[in-house]
Write a protein that binds this DNA or RNA. Structure first.
Lengths: 200, 200
DNA sequence: GGCTTCTGTTCTCATAATGTTCTCATTATA
DNA sequence: TATAATGAGAACATTATGAGAACAGAAGCC
């Protein structure tokens, strides 16, 4: 195996599969592979997958693709949680035995977005922060969402329906900015904020 | 028990259940699962739960769902990072940085602390947030630290030395509160904030 | 008790999606 | 020119997915 060099499209296919699995922790469908490498035919995608399998780069049976290369480094997404600390008056720090578990941040439908701008500053989301998004097409009033307006402009705002759902109001958390109201058809929800992360 | 790979919806169901249990400390109803994964039929939700049970990811009898300890809980601490969100364009990828890597949050000298109170609110650290602490006994001016005062009171503040190190000033990020100054011997640093996390 | 409501469970029916194999072009390349 | 690489898409069998009906049991409510 692995004797002959990969053709350009085969390499492209392998790259795509690796990237996809790194992101989604699950194998892509032939349809997604086809789209990912810029073709339309599932049959052709299948041909490339077959070639990669024959060449020993991946194992593929019955649509289940596994990478044969080394797996990405995996770690436990938990931390000891030492108890509450009063940021107001200093009070005793009580050692707890709890664990901070961040696994729900890493669901397969989640992604992260770097925030730019101050429109959510009063919600404690600052310029440069990263928000964790759960991909969903619907939201509840009060959720912080990523909304795509007219399929071209993405924004991070509080979500609220109005007029029995015919309009959607996107509310910034910044008193210097005004809420925006759109017909519901112009707004597409791209996900709901489930967490926020900042580094120092 | 070693399973064939989960289908997409099965994975989605498992993610939802895990997230739900993490948040509510109780198992979701079939109705909620259905809604959570975007379908309307309890019967279909039941089918997925059954499949997860057969595959050994969860234990389910009579509507009681438990997560099994040996399921693939170890996940990698990275997320796709989809780029900056700002007015103008859909989310676009950041060249050279397409993964949010949180592994440095999980170093062995790190721990998490739940914040109580508003003294760091102007630094964007809100009541109920969790801060990630790297255990250290020294800090630099401007760091946010956990400081133990007189070996009995812990507090989260900006750190600053004064009077050539003879005194330590602990500064809240809240203009309604006053900085506090202590002799250096009375203050012991317990760690420095390297990150902050919030859930919604 | 009788009634309603909710739940889990099982079932059938339909439709969409997927992997696979195939033939027929077109394009690049040696 | 000859060969390999690439692409489209049809055809087929199988699986995945979704809706909803039907039923039994539990729980609450009058």
């Amino acid at each position: 195996m692995r004797t002959e060099a990969l053709t350009r499209k085969q390499q492209q296919t392998l790259d795509f599969i690796q990237r996809y699995i790194a992101r989604h922790a699950t194998a892509p469908k032939l349809r997604e592979i086809a789209e990912g490498i810029g073709i339309r035919s599932r049959g052709v995608a299948h041909r490339y997958v077959q070639a990669l399998s024959d060449a020993g780069y991946i194992a593929s049976n019955d649509g289940n693709i596994r990478l044969l290369a080394d797996n990405p480094h995996r770690i436990d997404a938990t931390l000891p949680l030492l108890g509450k600390i009063a940021a107001g008056k200093p009070i005793e720090a009580i050692p707890g035995e709890d664990q901070l578990d961040l696994r729900d941040f890493f669901g397969s439908n989640n992604y992260a977005v770097r925030v730019q701008g101050d429109s959510m500053i009063e919600a404690g989301i600052y310029d440069g922060d990263t928000v964790i998004i759960e991909f969903r097409e619907t939201a509840e009033n009060g959720d912080i969402v990523i909304a795509l307006i007219d399929e071209c402009e993405a924004t991070l705002k509080y979500f609220q329906r109005s007029h029995k759902g015919r309009y959607i109001k996107l509310i910034p958390a910044n008193k210097d900015m005004e809420p925006m109201v759109y017909e519901a058809e112009r707004v597409r929800i791209q996900g709901v904020v489930i967490g926020q992360i900042r580094r120092y």
